[in-house]
Design a protein around this nucleic acid. Structure first.
Lengths: 126, 126
DNA sequence: ATGCTAATGACAATTTATTGTCAATAAAGG
DNA sequence: CCTTTATTGACAATAAATTGTCATTAGCAT
């Protein structure tokens, strides 16, 4: 396995994710990290985020009808859900989780996970 | 507005949707309807499904990280959620709905809708 | 400082889903 | 049966996200 080298690009992307407070799209990650490293290419954003995913330092947040967003693993480890604002298209983390999901399933179905997305307007856009 | 003409293709697609009992992808719709009308093209499946959507005879069922599936409006009118089998990738309708979602939101957020997807293994694959 | 090579950036290429185009076909009214 | 034109199928074209390639840059061990 090749030796790892730390770069300004990698740090900028990790910090963009950590400071966001909400899941970011690849484009958002690129934009934000590019403020610290203006030469940062979108190609590198893809590469670094993928390495973060491989290393379990970040997780993908699927969004209905859109490409995945990403958030730090530390955030994802605290089970939560998401709210997407229809006006500004931002996705927010929402604490809490409805219970009793297993009871919704027909006989014989095995529940491995679930995803709940709420949508509407965020406080800022409402 | 141009006069409508009924065709075997249209009927095959409508019946495929109605007899499926679960949301179908565009490819699934095409495959199934093509059993009744072997010359049916995927292009026509897109056209007919879009007309069904325009006419509110069908609705799109968004799926995380995948293109929409479709189901008859009559089914969608009864509020429900979906279960995706990780083994066979089929999506099933699930009756019931967790309540109290509005209480999960921060102050000022307006809830317009929600989507809940459960996943795991269906009875057949488990 | 020097050398090795991991990491990057530019840009082409791919992938997957969907849509545009247009000649050929066929539904429905006269 | 004929005519009109909505509908279809073949195929090209697009759109958007992601990935491949490769010459250049720059970490870091020596």
């Amino acid at each position: 396995m090749p030796a790892r080298r730390h770069t300004a690009q990698q740090r900028a992307i990790r910090e963009a994710l950590e400071h966001a407070g909400r899941p970011l799209s690849m484009a958002e990650i690129h934009q934000r990290a590019a403020q610290a490293v203006p030469t940062l290419s979108l190609r590198t954003a893809y590469r670094v985020v993928h390495r973060l995913l491989d290393d379990q330092d970040a997780v993908a947040v699927p969004v209905l009808g859109q490409p995945d967003r990403y958030e730090p693993a530390a955030v994802a480890d605290r089970h939560h859900h998401h709210f997407r604002c229809e006006a500004c298209d931002r996705v927010f983390d929402i604490a809490g989780c409805p219970g009793g999901l297993k009871r919704m399933l027909p006989e014989g179905f095995e529940l491995a996970g679930h995803e709940l997305t709420l949508w509407g307007r965020c406080a800022e856009c409402a």
